[in-house]
Design a protein around this nucleic acid. Structure first.
Length: 270
DNA sequence: AGCGGAACCTGTCGGC
DNA sequence: TGCCGACAGGTTCCGC
């Protein structure tokens, strides 16, 4: 499901709801989500800890507990958090955190999500792999040039690679390349400085705009009490196959790259 | 080392 | 209505 704007939207929502609350009890209906901690230790470490902050790194949510403990969560395709005033029994709720006055439920219909516990976020293998954030000032044309210089893969595929730049997924990769007027097939090492600069600028522009709209809901993304992202209205190519490009009226094309859909305008993107 | 494809799961939608 | 295949905002692993 979620990319940078959606994950940040979830975090902003959760911060309003659960910062400062203490974990009183945890009900775990399926242990498969716990990736580096046995169920007993997981509960033992978290119970009686207070949630003091929630941060994002790439598409990971990092819950900071007091006494320097971190719960690192990846939502993958369908992970969702619900904050309930009382305990309710929802299909696919697999972890339920009793926060005394509220309940935080982790819901995941496809069961792909992951939970890691660590007392040192610098050391967690999964987070180490996460590259710079596209909204970071250090994400600029020189950075991209360095990263892509020797890579012959198609640029669309590399925008999805979280070790190059983090937070971009399948929706925004297509949207960014359309905005930058660059073909998704272009080989990374063949991009000019001008083209790289356009990718940098478009990445920041599209992601910031999507953030403003609370992300994109095409199928199932939601946060809070079934609130949805509103960036759909502004999608220019994603899911627009056979519709006319708003700039040149050429039909938007859908193809596959590494078994994932890419949408683009063959006229505007060269 | 690097690539494509499968695997992890469930749900939904469109076509016949 | 029902069955079947394709597809879904992600990542990792496996075999060539």
């Amino acid at each position: 499901m979620p990319e940078l704007p959606e994950v940040q939207t979830v975090i902003d929502y959760l911060k309003k709801e659960i910062i400062g609350l203490k974990i009183k009890q945890i009900e775990i209906k399926n242990e498969k989500f716990l990736k580096n901690t046995a169920i007993g230790i997981f509960k033992q470490k978290l119970i009686n800890k207070k949630i003091v902050d929630i941060k994002r790194k790439g598409k990971y949510l990092i819950f900071e507990l007091d006494n320097s403990l971190f719960m690192v969560v990846h939502l993958r395709m369908e992970g969702k958090f619900f904050v309930d005033q009382k305990k309710i029994n929802r299909k696919h709720d697999y972890l339920i955190f009793d926060l005394t006055e509220k309940f935080l439920a982790y819901n995941d219909s496809r069961q792909f999500g992951t939970f890691h516990l660590t007392d040192n976020i610098e050391e967690l293998k999964e987070l180490k792999k996460v590259a710079i954030d596209p909204l970071d000032d250090k994400f600029d044309v020189n950075y991209l040039k360095n990263k892509l210089d020797k890579l012959r893969k198609e640029i669309k595929v590399l925008l999805l690679d979280q070790t190059i730049v983090s937070g971009i997924g399948n929706i925004y990769a297509s949207e960014i390349l359309f905005d930058a007027k660059i073909s998704p097939f272009k080989k990374a090492n063949e991009l000019s400085m001008d083209e790289l600069e356009r990718i940098v600028v478009s990445s920041k522009k599209i992601l910031k705009l999507a953030l403003k709209y609370n992300g994109t809901t095409i199928h199932t993304f939601s946060f809070g009490e079934n609130k949805t992202g509103e960036f759909n209205k502004l999608l220019k190519v994603m899911n627009q196959a056979n519709k006319k490009c708003y700039i040149c009226s050429t039909n938007i094309v859908r193809i596959k790259q590494q078994s994932r859909s890419t949408f683009y305008c063959p006229q505007c993107q060269k």
